[in-house]
């Protein structure tokens, strides 16, 4: 038994050493990064260099990736890393400075601004949310009030809004999704989405579910609209980019990038690029709405 204790201690010691070694390495990389930043300051070169980390919303992610490629072409010494994780993760990563820029596909919540008072919000684009049904649906238009009642579970049959006699099945995103938060904000107001709604964890999964299930209704980001689902006009206005730009279609949310406190030069340069004419041209090309 005593012998065993001895052995066990040896192993614990070995483990401790191992962990200490790992910790040491981490510190080293830290100093290396410090050095490079001091070098930067000493050289005072006009071009920027270093890494730029973007973390957050999976809705903003594909857009940010395309923007990053163009920015890297302008500033070849800056490497931009784009990571997903969701809007809330984006805000938190920016606030604890684990990312240079956080991405959020919704308004920044009051609670978040209170918790992290130095958050700076930069709106980089806008995105519409369309109400869609399965392709065979004969309904062309609904009022915003009808949409709210359908998603709240008060209207449960298509014949109540002028369609066939068929149960309405609501499809929504999961709690915490930026698209859901924006939809709740702009359409549902204080009403809750019905509990029996089918919840799918991504825009793509919502689209597939709606396209194969008769009687379904749901909401999708503009970028996901195609012939698999049928876009429903709200108060007679079709969810198209033109209508959203002109302001006729009102279910439009901002896509944001957030920074915390003072921004570094390279971060500011990236944000400036995104809202520049070239940056906004990319936004439009990728199917989002410019900030105007």
């Amino acid at each position: 038994m005593k012998l065993f204790t001895g052995r066990f201690l040896t192993i614990v010691a070995a483990l401790a050493l191992l962990i200490a070694a790992c910790g040491g390495e981490g510190e080293e990389t830290g100093t290396a990064a410090d050095q490079s930043s001091t070098n930067e300051a000493v050289n005072e070169e006009p071009s920027l260099e270093g890494d730029l980390n973007l973390v957050g919303s999976t809705t903003v992610q594909p857009l940010a990736e395309v923007l990053a490629i163009s920015f890297e072409a302008l500033e070849p010494d800056v490497i931009v890393y784009v990571q997903g994780g969701g809007s809330s993760v984006g805000v938190r990563s920016a606030a604890d400075r684990s990312a240079d820029i956080g991405m959020a596909s919704r308004e920044i919540k009051l609670s978040e601004l209170q918790e992290y008072p130095e958050l700076v919000v930069h709106t980089i684009a806008r995105d519409g949310i369309a109400v869609v049904s399965e392709p065979g649906c004969i309904i062309e238009t609904l009022t915003k009030e009808q949409v709210r009642q359908i998603f709240a579970g008060e209207i449960t049959n298509w014949n109540e809004v002028g369609g066939e006699d068929m149960m309405i099945t609501v499809v929504a995103r999961e709690e915490g999704s930026g698209t859901r938060a924006a939809f709740e904000d702009m359409v549902m107001e204080d009403v809750l989405i019905v509990d029996s709604a089918i919840l799918q964890p991504s825009n793509g999964a919502v689209r597939t579910t709606i396209s194969v299930t008769p009687g379904t209704i749901g909401f999708l980001s503009f970028g996901y609209l195609d012939e698999q689902t049928k876009a429903i006009a709200i108060d007679g206005v079709l969810p198209t980019e033109e209508n959203a730009v002109s302001g006729e279609y009102s279910i439009v949310r901002p896509l944001n990038m957030v920074t915390y406190g003072e921004t570094e030069e390279k971060t500011q340069a990236f944000l400036d690029f995104v809202i520049s004419e070239d940056g906004q041209a990319i936004v439009v090309e990728e199917g989002y709405l410019p900030i105007i």
């Binding site: 994780g85 969701g86 993760v89 938190r92 999961e174 709690e175 915490g176 999704s177 930026g178 029996s196």
Partner: peptide, 18 residues
Amino acid sequence: SRARTLTGNIAVEINYAT
């Protein structure tokens, strides 16, 4: 009837949870 599993609850929401 529709339902949600314990594992599904974690996987569906963890990306956005704080």
